[in-house]
Design a protein around this nucleic acid. Structure first.
Lengths: 204, 204, 204, 204
DNA sequence: ATATAAACGAGACGGTACGTCGGGTCTTTTT
DNA sequence: AAAAAGACCCGACGTACCGTCTCGTTTATAT
């Protein structure tokens, strides 16, 4: 299932009829982001978005299959601010960098709230959950996998390490903190990185 | 805010008026648990619960401030199946035990679905979020803290370890897997425990 | 059906148990009358009356079969202020007197509002309608029949006059004005009496 | 306040949006009339009307401010069956005609029950009362005023007669009989007309 | 130029569920 | 036994949104 993109146009040959109004497209995303920030997820309704955007409801239903798709697109739109991490010569620093970036991103845009909402939405809608699990999340892991593989080449990482499981742990920490509205302080990030790299045990 | 308990009666002196009907109380919880399993969270409505339980809606609103409170009470009711972990002489084994128990508990009762729903509900309702963060979660951490402190006495754990942060990581992993409907296999639990205790790095 | 009286006590032999609490009886009527005046008929609920009277709902249901019965009793309680009309030697004057009295009574007590409410209630409840038609109204007509029969003896009245039909007309006028909240002025009463006695036509 | 008509459409220029569905409009009136006849006023609920009409509740609330407005429109819809009275050369005959017509109309359609219900509804709702008094009733009096003025020209009527007061008496009789569910027989109508025209008194 | 086609805003439609009110009944403790 | 208190099941209220469906209008491509 495709949640975020317009149905065909990108692929399809040009056809008759009025083309998609990009102004409406943008104002829907703006309206949704604004409402999410101002009134919260529970007050985010299609009807409200349409009214705020000055758009007919049908226009929304035509281009997005559900609320989550709008939220994902908001995330995506602002997400260009997240770049690959340069080689800092040390996993620990790079992970700290990645964690800091994502929390800054969540704090400074509507994306944090949007993401929380997508997760909530996924709990009652299988299609949303599938999209979240199989497309949205893997996409976000790429930057991390780059870093981890680089570290592996450097020999900083256990040879038997399961990267996906490790990322479940890292992302899990972030989700937990996001979903309970407890953004970590820089000190907490520092400590978390130590725990992730060094583990809880005393070591050998 | 108290979400799950009846207002005063347990503490209070006896008073005039018809007492709370315990049969209705139970059948509401049963109905909610059944509907959650059969139809999923998005189809879980107060109206539906009342109908299935053979109860007036008012009776539900009288005793529970919101859907989340019902779900928490379902969790709580079945939760007595989770006991303290006996001393196995080794943190690693004990954490494996705790993880295994919680996933078995989530799998075998309605509690896993109930918990997912509570988290979802908390994303749109500050009162639910507060309850979840400040009462529900801390309560679940007690068993874990016992184990960690025992390990600390044994000297199995870094002296500077922040237990709460460590538990954010552990619970985070669980949340992530629960919310994406990906229960871990025993092998995955095994690997996760290794990562948690030993860390991702090569060690000293 | 008996709407207004307490079920048995008036007839029955004295029996065991706590006797009817006359204070509660009175405070129910007071509370109902007050609420009717303050908030109007649509806000007059059994629950509200009980609360205002400081009485359990059951106490009301024990003694009155429905709201109309309470309203009738309010009417009855104040109704002792309506006496028989003394012989003024002339029907016209006596009818004027009767009309003036009833409107003064309705204006000065809660009875006018109570009566409106009873009529409204009767439109949806056959038992109330039957009581209204067969007991409540006939009782109110007695004073009028006395006057009319006196006039008949005086020879002031057509020999073929149907008194009941005449009273349907007189009471009809009153109902119409009461139900549309248009109490007649003394001048209007004067004119109405003329029309009732002399008719619309030019006469012989 | 306008109770019965759709807000603007009849007058207004055409506007955007889906137009009012006339099928739904009609089926609401039909459903209300049927339910009123079958189950009575006390069982006439908006919810019931919507269900019977196969219509959403909102569709009712969109077009009618209250139940009374629906009932008035039912009355109005069938009311076209009431025509002006032709000149019969004699008030007495014409009034007999008018009375006979109205009672036939009330008997043969749902209108009698609808009207009773409107009067009941007006006792608890000022807006309904105002509409009833200032718009609904005056409209019904026009036919009567035509007849009375014709009679005046013929010289059949007292020169000082107050027509409105006379109609309060006539309508009052009808209301009284309608509200107590006692439709008059033709003989009673005959007698009432005599009383109205000739008065109760012996005459000069 | 003029069809034809599709997107647009507006807003009515049949529905579902909400949270509240009140009805009439039932079950306690208190008087 | 009656009363105050208050919980019970139930039905209806009026509202909010859902996702769908006309409308008249606008803007493109295809004749």
């Amino acid at each position: 299932m495709r949640l975020t993109d317009e149905p065909q146009q990108s692929i399809d040959h040009i056809h008759a009829g009025r083309p998609r109004c990009e102004k409406a497209h943008g104002s829907v995303l703006d309206a949704a982001a604004e409402l999410l920030n101002e009134r919260g997820y529970s007050a985010l309704t299609i009807e409200g978005i349409a009214a705020r955007a000055g758009v007919g409801k049908q226009t929304i239903y035509r281009w997005w299959p559900n609320k989550a798709a709008i939220l994902c697109e908001i995330y995506e739109r602002d997400g260009c601010k997240l770049h690959a991490t340069p080689d800092l010569g040390c996993v620990e620093a790079e992970i700290r960098e990645l964690l800091g970036n994502i929390w800054a991103f969540w704090r400074e845009t509507a994306s944090g709230q949007a993401f929380r909402s997508v997760i909530a939405e996924a709990q009652g809608d299988q299609a949303v959950l599938t999209h979240l699990r199989d497309e949205f999340i893997p996409k976000r892991r790429i930057h991390w996998l780059v870093v981890l593989e680089r570290a592996q080449k450097r020999g900083e990482v256990r040879s038997d390490a399961n990267f996906n499981l490790f990322l479940d742990i890292v992302f899990g920490f972030n989700w937990h903190r996001l979903l309970t509205d407890q953004p970590p302080t820089p000190q907490e990030i520092e400590s978390v990185v130590k725990l992730l790299i060094g583990g809880l045990g005393v070591g050998c």
